[in-house]
Simulated assay, not measured.
Amino acid sequence: MTVRPFHHGNLRAVLLEQAEILLRAGGADGLSLRELARHAGVSHGAPRSHFIDRQALLDALAVRGFERLTEAVRAALASEASIERRFRAVGHAYVDFAVDDAALMELMFAAKVSDPAADVEQAAGRLFATLDAAMADASAGAPGADDRDRFKLLFAATMQGTATLIASRRVSRDQGDAIVDDAVDVLLGSPLAHRAVPRR
């Protein structure tokens, strides 16, 4: 096993990178501070200088995942102009992340649901605020917050379901891409979308 050399100042980043490798290999259940220390080639106490316990490590991984997904969504939004194209781009970015980082995605939303730490809640909030940007239209009146929240949850659930179909090999990646495009067309044509995402 080759571990990247580190200096004192970047030990936390190295530990998180190694923790992601362990997470992909064995899921969250197999991740412990002791195993992380062994895998990273440091003393058993070294991880505790950055993560007080295992839950703090899991929360830090969840925050890292939310930040990475938020950046992917922002990049998708920046590349497209129309609301339809923005949602397709965001949908593809979301599904790509959920397929390529399935264990991290599962950890992120598990951490958010079960009594989330403040930093996890804030990181998840930034993701949903970024999704709000995809729904923005300068010419539109302000839709009800409830409709917007329902639409965001429906959109995320649909993309997560598509990612699950791809990850379980029930559909191919190409079929999944087509499902994303079709789902966006259906979602944006719904009465809920016309209330939550008003357009010209």
Rank of each mutant, 00 (worst) to 15 (best):
V180I: 12
K112P: 00
D53I: 02
L107D: 04
P143I: 08
L131M: 13
R199G: 13
Q18K: 07
I166E: 15
D100C: 05
G176A: 09
T70W: 09
V90H: 07
S172T: 15
R88C: 12
P143S: 15
L22F: 01
F87R: 06
L192N: 11
M1E: 15
V63C: 14
L15W: 10
R54V: 02
F97T: 05
R86S: 04
E84Y: 11
E67W: 01
A40D: 04
S49N: 06
V99E: 03
H44S: 09
R68D: 15
R54Q: 09
Q160G: 14
R12T: 01
R12N: 04
A193F: 10
L61M: 11
A60F: 03
A13P: 00
A13T: 12
A19I: 00
A40C: 11
G141I: 03
Q175Y: 04
R150C: 08
G9F: 05
D101L: 01
G141W: 01
T70E: 14
S49L: 12
R4N: 08
A129N: 09
L131E: 11
S43H: 09
D59K: 02
T2F: 14
V95A: 03
G91F: 02
A157R: 01
A123K: 09
R169P: 01
I83R: 12
L187F: 02
F87G: 02
R150A: 13
D53P: 03
A62K: 13
D185W: 00
H8K: 08
A13Y: 04
L57N: 08
V120G: 03
A28F: 02
L15A: 03
L15Q: 05
A37L: 03
A76N: 09
A183W: 01
E67L: 07
A157F: 01
A78S: 15
L127Q: 06
F128I: 07
R126H: 15
E84T: 10
V120E: 10
R48L: 08
A98I: 03
V197M: 14
R126Q: 15
F97Y: 15
A196H: 06
A62T: 10
L192R: 07
S43M: 07
G45H: 10
E20P: 01
S168E: 13
Q122T: 12
V73D: 15
R86E: 10
S49G: 00
H50A: 11
G26A: 11
S139W: 10
